[in-house]
Amino acid sequence: MDLIVTLMPILLFVLLFWVILIRPQQKRQKQVTEMQNNLQKGDDIITIGGLHASVHALDEGTVVLEVNDGQRLTYDRTSIREKKA
């Protein structure tokens, strides 16, 4: 019984750490992965580096982006941070 009482604060700390930090990060990562998998031609996006472009073509692991002046750049899908509304 004393062992349970002694370990209770440590277990509560681990549970609190998981609920406050780890779980929300997992949810955000899942949403980003879903967004990257659901990209379609013509979507306006922002890359991790801050490049604003639109999707010109899609491949399994890469995305061809078209910037304002008509240039096309190839990026990995994982480098897409968000889709503009």
Rank of each mutant, 00 (worst) to 15 (best):
A85Y: 12
L51G: 01
D76N: 13
G49K: 13
I22N: 03
R28G: 00
D2P: 03
L51C: 02
D69E: 15
G50V: 05
Q36N: 00
D44S: 05
Q31G: 00
L3S: 10
I45V: 15
F17R: 02
N68W: 14
H56Q: 03
L11D: 04
L58W: 00
R28L: 11
E34L: 07
T47N: 01
N68K: 11
V14Q: 03
M8G: 01
V32G: 00
N68S: 14
G42S: 03
M8R: 15
S79C: 03
T6Q: 14
A85P: 15
D59Q: 13
T33Q: 11
G61L: 11
R23Q: 08
E34P: 00
K30E: 08
V19D: 06
A53C: 09
R23D: 10
S54W: 08
I10N: 07
G49D: 14
R77W: 04
R77V: 06
A53K: 08
L65S: 03
D76R: 15
I45F: 03
E82Q: 14
L58N: 01
K27N: 09
M8P: 01
N37L: 09
D69C: 02
I46S: 11
W18L: 12
N38P: 01
V67L: 06
V14L: 13
K83D: 07
L12W: 07
R77I: 06
V5T: 12
I4M: 11
L7F: 11
L39R: 02
D44N: 11
D44L: 06
V5Q: 14
Q25I: 12
N68V: 10
V5G: 08
I45H: 00
G50N: 02
L11P: 00
D69K: 09
L15A: 10
P24K: 05
E66F: 02
T74V: 14
R23V: 09
N38G: 03
I20K: 11
L11I: 09
D76P: 04
D69I: 04
M35K: 00
V32E: 04
V64C: 08
V5D: 15
R23A: 06
E82L: 10
L39K: 02
L15R: 11
G50H: 02
I20M: 13
Q40H: 06
I4Q: 10
G61V: 09
A53S: 14
G70I: 08
K30Y: 06
R23E: 09
F17A: 07
N37W: 02
W18H: 06
Y75E: 08
Q25G: 14
S79F: 06
V14G: 00
R28P: 01
E66K: 14
H52E: 13
Y75N: 07
P24F: 03
W18Y: 12
N37S: 15
N38Y: 04
I20W: 09
R77T: 01
G49E: 14
P9T: 00
L16K: 05
Q36M: 01
N68L: 11
G70L: 12
I22F: 07
Y75V: 12
